[in-house]
Write a protein that binds this DNA or RNA. Sequence first.
RNA 1: GCCUGGGUAGGGUAGCUGGUUAUCCUAUGGGACUGUGGAUCCCACGACUCGGGUUCGAAUCCCGACCCGGGCCCCA
Length: 411
Amino acid sequence: MKIQKPRGTRDFLPEEMAKRKYVENNLRDVAERWGYGEIKTPTFENIELFTLKSGDGILGEIYNFRDKGDREIALRPELTAPVVRMYVEELQKSAKPLKFYYFDNCFRYERPQKGRFREFFQFGIEIIGSDRPEADAEVIALAVEMLRSVGVSGDLHVGHLGIMRTLFKDILPEHQSKIMRLVDKKDDKGLEEFLEEINAPDEMRGRLFRLIGLRGINAVQEARELVGDSVDMDRFEALLDLLDVYGLEYRVDLGIARGLDYYTGMVFEIYCEGLGAQNQVCGGGSYRLAKLFGGEDTPSTGYALGFDRIMEVCEAAPEEKTRVVVVCFDDTRKEGIVIANKLREHAVVYIDVMGRKFKEQMKYANTIGASHVVIAGKDELEAEKVALKDMKTGEQEVMGVDDVIAKLNIT
RNA sequence: GCCUGGGUAGGGUAGCUGGUUAUCCUAUGGGACUGUGGAUCCCACGACUCGGGUUCGAAUCCCGACCCGGGCCCCA
């Protein structure tokens, strides 16, 4: 029986890897230019790192195992928690803000479907140490810029959890989180029923429903009327102001709840067409996790891009490289290798390793789409030259290897 | 975990109202061609996802598992 890759995993062949690498490099480049430094955390962590903030309920979605030292280990299901762990463990006293980016694989035990795999890739950034609107705005602008750099445009939705939370500060925390979940799902009916069930005050109910329905430019003003003035309101307004400075198009959506418990302030999501049910390519917000992991309370903001989903929708592709095939004969194979090596300093060079005859080598050059063939035959070599053939035009010319290099660099 | 569609050589397919050696295209390796590619011809390679059941006989019908696609749940 043939061995197959595990469910929800993928192999990436050279052609696709070239494209993925290209997109990855573009994202990296943007992150670097904005002053973010790359970090790498372990592929697996102690499982508490992930259960601490989300409870045991998430165990069903985590790849976990007990190692030989009887430690409970989890393959990382996301990267925000590891980054904060790293910060708490070794960077708490560093100059703020800390700005990191990462690109790595994550694992979740879920039913695979379009844009969702059990091993998937996230490209994300975190900025640690600032709770100011400037940090929030920079993060959002960076997300949009990254997507733009690979030719992806999406709908940006921006919200703020602090505003909604002021509405039900008197409600039990577990009820709050259930409400957030329902809000995030846009399940108005379920929300109505739940509010009924926990006997929420009528007055609060009405305000909540009006709040999560708020959209567009007047949303802030209306929200202010609904929940009153607060630091969060001011910050949110300042944030929107800054988003205008960045020249971003966005939609205020106070109904974003992100389904997660740890976000505390600004939250945002970016959606794309053409991805079916999994249309979110980016999600993030500001949070306070450091304290939970045993550090000082520290504000942070970040997001993760769904790299695989970006690959689904992005058209960007690397330029085709110039390929050159060195063709030789049985009596010139060694000379061919030397010439190929010299040319490799300037181009992508192939040389026969199949023991093929001259004609077959030409054929191979054609199949791989070589732009040029360098023929190293006895006659040419005796004159210290080779023949350069242009595969498009069919023209051929005898010249020295240095001339070949010069010629290839021009075209 | 649930609902739904599907699984035949590396890729794409025919067969699927059960019945010889499972069809064709393409790709790949080799040859016709010994210093000039894309064409043609020939040869080779290579598949019924797995397991059980029904049957004299299963790629074909039934059940289960696995995997893929779409949707739900979930999405830290």
